[in-house]
Structures are given as structure tokens and as C-alpha cells.
Nucleic acid binder design. Structure first.
Lengths: 171, 171
DNA sequence: TCATGATTCCGAATGTCTTCTGGCATTTTT
DNA sequence: AAAAATGCCAGAAGACATTCGGAATCATGA
């Protein structure tokens, strides 16, 4: 019997099929999702109806996914952000998925990454202040079964990019 | 002369001034920015015109900020994500701001955090594959003046929350 | 308590945008 | 070459966002 060289990653959904124009639409919408179809159409040199049809197709194909607003954290009482670098105990490593699911339920958590390297998890949290950070770390993480160790990194500054790079040749 | 107890953080913009209804609107829009004003109005029990006026005010006050779509990374040829944990050399620590500005220009970078602790920067990158990751790390980071050391953490899995917690009493 | 002013809300009117339809041109398939 | 499929456009119809005047509510102070 031969090896399965697809390695379980085969995907029958034919994920290709976006062209240069689609890529331009995606770029615009990643940077500003409030652009009207008319504005996008003008930018890419297509009629609004054609532009609309393309966007509808991108949505149907689940290439265009959720849309989210950013909110000023200060207004909500958020004065501090941090990364929690978590190391799991050995017995917990088998059920990492459910651990991620639990962690992401905590309201103060923005994202949780399961990673290789020195740590197992990197978790971004938003809190009121250092007191709140201490309570959150102790109550929701250090104390949690399966957590072996935590390193806390306060975030002093942050920059973001909203547009993903295009790393693929287009037909 | 007395100490300045504001610690340089004073803010004359009176950031308060959102009520329970505003918070509900922010919550809905963080989870789904494509909701129509009509839908939001129905959800919070207000007339569309009133809802619209509130959203306009939140935007004018810069409480509601950018809106961004998520795009399926696979379609763009992204097959791998990683965190780069960067340690800066001593002389570079004075010009950390410009370093952040430079890093965020790299198309493969999604965010860059300046942090305390073992590392100085945590940078989220998206790449095609491990080969691309190697090239990116060497060409754009290890080789960059001011970078003392890099630790690479491959991201195996990720979860996100889009709604910030409400950590403040509302008037 | 009452008057006053400010705030918040509503319903209706308006203007704009999204969405749908049909048809044309181009390309691909057979 | 005929047929089918694709991508585009213009125009129409409908839904929506936006604006406005006025009513209702709330806060303030006499």
C-alpha cells in the first residue's frame, strides 16, 4: 500500500478562482469595509452591478468573511493590554483544543494562539489596570488545571496591518 | 514644586459619555459590522432614526473606529502563520517607535506589539510556507540592525473574540 | 410645583445605494 | 462553426440611510 501523500489536507472546494480584480476588491475592503459598492466600482474600473456580483460571489464562497468594527478601548474602561505566555502541563497537552475553547470564552481575551516553542499558548488580554491583570491571571489562568506556568508581558505599544499579502500567482 | 500626579496621561476629551444603549450598539457592531441600522434598532428597541443618530455620534467621537473585513488566508496563498519574538540590541532600544513603524510596513506582518518581559517585540506574520518564513525572518528581521535575537513560534491554531469587555460603570 | 431648557426620541420625507433583471459581447466548449 | 458559459453593463425597482420638525422626557432652578 502506498503512502497517502495528501497528508489529510486535500480540499475539494477548488479554493483558487480569484483574479486580479477580486484581489483589488479584497484589498480595499480589508482596509475599509465601509466603502460603498459605488466607490469600489469607481476604484477598480467596473460597473457597480458587476462589482456587486463579484462581492456577492466572494461572500458566498466564504472568501470574504466577517466584518468587525474597532472600538476605542479607553471608552470601555480598558487601560492596559498584555500577552500571557502559557506553558501547559504534560497531561493537558492532549486536550489543547478544548483548552483553547475555554480560554476564548473569557471576556478579557482577544485572541489565543496555540504555538510551538518555549510556550504553548500566547493569549492577548485587555484589562482595567495592573490589579485587574493580576486577578485575571490568577483566577482564570494560573489556577486553571493544566496550566504549568505563565509569563506576563505588558503591551506598551502596538501597530496593525489590516491587508493580508497576496502570496499566490493569479490565473 | 509638587509632583505632577497626572503622570502625563491627562486627557481633556472627556472620554466618558456612553450609556447602556451605546454599549449595546458597540457590542453588536463588533461582532457583525454588516448589520443594518434597521436590524440594530430592532435589537436594542429604538427607532432607526434614533439608532442612526447614536451611531453617527459614536463615529464623530472616534469611539467607533475602522471597519475591516476578514479574508480567507488560504485563498491568498497563506499557508502558515507565526509569531516572531524579537529581542533588540541595547542601542536600538531608544528608537523603538521607528522600529515599530518599519516593521509594520512589511506586508507579511499583521501586528507588532512592543512588550515587557523576556522579549521586546512580538510580531505576527503570515507566510506561504516554512521556506518563506525562513527567508522573511532572515531578510527582514535577523538581518535588520538593532535586532539581537529572534525566537520563532509557529501558530498551530487560533481563536478570536471580537467584542471588547465593558470594564467601566455606565452613568 | 411649575417653568425653562436641554436631551432624546420618533415618524415621515428625501435622496442614495443596493439589488435584480435582461441583454450584449467575449470566451470556451463541443 | 455552433452552442454554452462567462463577464460585463445599463436601467428599474426596492430597500436603505439620512435628514428634519416636532413630541416626549428629563434635569435644573426659581
Amino acid at each position: 500500500m502506498a503512502f497517502d501523500r495528501t497528508n489529510g489536507l486535500r480540499d475539494n472546494t477548488l479554493p483558487a478562482g480569484i483574479d486580479r480584480t477580486d484581489a483589488a476588491i479584497l484589498g480595499l475592503l480589508q482596509n475599509n469595509a465601509r466603502l460603498s459598492i459605488k466607490e469600489i466600482a469607481a476604484e477598480i474600473g467596473l460597473a457597480p452591478s458587476s462589482t456587486h456580483e463579484r462581492i456577492r460571489r466572494l461572500r458566498d464562497a466564504d472568501i470574504l468573511r466577517g466584518v468587525h468594527v474597532e472600538v476605542d478601548p479607553k471608552v470601555l474602561g480598558i487601560g492596559l493590554e498584555a500577552l500571557l505566555m502559557i506553558e501547559l502541563s504534560k497531561h493537558r497537552r492532549s486536550t489543547v483544543d478544548s483548552f483553547l475553547d475555554e480560554v476564548i470564552q473569557v471576556p478579557e481575551v482577544r485572541f489565543a494562539f496555540l504555538v510551538t516553542g518555549r510556550h504553548d499558548l500566547v493569549v492577548h488580554v485587555v484589562v482595567r489596570d495592573t490589579q485587574h491583570l493580576k486577578d485575571l491571571a490568577l483566577d482564570n489562568f494560573t489556577n486553571r488545571p493544566g496550566v504549568a506556568r505563565i509569563e506576563t508581558s505588558i503591551i506598551f505599544d502596538a501597530r496593525r496591518r489590516y491587508e493580508l499579502p497576496l502570496l499566490r500567482q493569479l490565473g
